[in-house]
Simulated assay, not measured.
Amino acid sequence: MRTFICTVLFIGILSNTIAQNTTDMKDFDPAFAHIVYFWFKDPANVKDKTHFEVSLKKFLSTSKYAKTNFIGTPPKATRDVVDGTFTYSLIVTFESAEAQQSYQEEDVHLVFIEECKHLWDKVLVYDSNGIK
């Protein structure tokens, strides 16, 4: 009986996870990736981090051009080649370089920059075209 209950729970959790992934996620678009690293002036300031996350999530949820996004923080580096000095990272995918350029000029993007630019000391961007 215990095995049956554990199996049913496992199947329920697995199917819920699969359902969330297929309904909540947009498809990753390999055409163009925009990777941004932010270094905050005060990286330990919780209020600054909260303000940044709220503003960034609001912006990304209303962008007409961003297809998928990933917001991250540095993990504890275990290798010398890993740079963990940034405060936040952002990866956004687009269907084309032209869509990414439109995103740069989009009102919601400009509002995000205005709301948060006082928080960062440095921003570094890497843009990449996908290999076909």
Rank of each mutant, 00 (worst) to 15 (best):
M1L: 14
M1H: 10
R2E: 15
T3Y: 15
F4M: 10
C6G: 05
V8T: 07
F10L: 11
F10T: 13
G12S: 11
G12F: 01
S15L: 15
T17G: 10
A19D: 11
N21A: 10
N21P: 08
T22D: 04
T23R: 04
A31L: 07
A33V: 02
A33W: 06
H34N: 03
Y37W: 02
Y37K: 04
W39H: 00
F40P: 07
K41N: 02
K41P: 08
P43T: 02
P43K: 01
N45H: 01
N45I: 06
K47M: 13
K47N: 15
K49S: 14
K49P: 05
K49N: 03
F52E: 07
K58N: 08
F59D: 03
Y65M: 06
N69W: 03
I71Q: 04
G72I: 04
P74L: 12
P74M: 09
A77F: 12
T78A: 03
V82N: 15
G84S: 14
G84V: 14
G84R: 11
F86Y: 09
Y88G: 01
S89H: 02
L90I: 09
F94I: 07
E95G: 07
E95S: 02
S96W: 01
E98L: 13
A99D: 09
Y103F: 05
E105I: 01
E106L: 10
D107L: 12
H109Q: 08
H109N: 05
H109F: 10
H109T: 04
C116R: 05
L119Q: 06
W120Y: 06
V123E: 02
L124Q: 15
G130Q: 06
